[in-house]
Write a protein that binds this DNA or RNA. Structure first.
Lengths: 151, 151
DNA sequence: ATGTTTGCAAATAGTTTGCATCCAG
DNA sequence: CTGGATGCAAACTATTTGCAAACAT
């Protein structure tokens, strides 16, 4: 429950920006504050709409770019797969995904232990469940190598 | 390992089409065959490129629409979240997602049992893992209700 | 002062829709 | 024949890029 913004949050944010060499701008603070009070999984558009009330001059691009920056900083995350082109999954057997967050590749894997995961009663009450899958995200070896060689 | 197309596959496909009242067209067969030999998680664009060699007259739209139709039929699936606008995940605690495939809402949930899932050695060898999450897909209650009232 | 960030506009990419024509049943 | 399917084009939507002006440090 992180609905009240505390001074601590802001200090932490400022330090984090500094550690990444980023400037503290009013826009970034506004976006960060909006992020703190957001529930759900807002799109850049949604954040933009909410911020516009109090900061009428902010541009959508700034919001979008800033959110991307925050994701780089690890302050927030991008919901798996969203924002990419639609991909189809041909494999109809029970399987799981590892996704490289750098190159976007998705690899299937099989792992007995994930196949009969129990589903919380609470979920069954609120959803008619069709599918359950484990999604692992990381950086694949070849992306790892290429980022080393780029430095 | 489904790399060789067998007559069975095609018969099964034809029956499935019939059961959905869909016509068997050369395009649908070509797309289905391409799907069968696809590994990875192709985009409509990728399928289109591969098919174009043997079916130069096929249009991208047909490929895209047909893949969507196949997904409706349950023949293939859409990779979770792909094709949607980018969404941000504000919640940095370990949590999991239930997604309604109808309205696109994503709801966080917490479930102790999912929090320390073992990761296969094979994955650790090939990826530097950042995140693991369980994603459940289904239809939420309010979508369920609205689809009943629409009939 | 100076290099980053912002806001705007334009470019690009991905997806959807409308419609005339075509073809499977 | 006839209704569903296709191909094309245009409309939309989402995302990215380039750049001049503004601002934080």
């Amino acid at each position: 429950m992180k609905k009240s913004i505390e001074k601590n949050d802001l200090d932490e944010f400022i330090n984090k920006c500094k550690s990444f060499g980023l400037k503290i701008t009013p826009q970034r603070i506004a976006i960060y504050q909006e992020v703190l009070v957001s529930s759900n999984h807002p799109s850049a558009e949604a954040i933009y709409r909410n911020i516009k009330d109090t900061h009428p001059n902010i541009s959508f691009d700034t919001v979008n770019r800033t959110l991307l920056t925050f994701a780089d900083m690890g302050l927030i995350q991008i919901v798996e797969g969203s924002g990419d082109a639609r991909r189809f999954d041909i494999n109809t057997e029970q399987h799981h995904h590892v996704r490289c967050t750098k190159c976007g590749s998705i690899t299937d894997f099989y792992w007995e232990k994930y196949n009969n995961l129990e589903i919380p009663e609470e979920i069954h009450e609120k959803f008619s469940v069709n599918k359950i899958r484990v999604v692992i995200e990381g950086i694949c070896n070849s992306c790892q190598l290429s980022s080393i060689s780029n430095e």
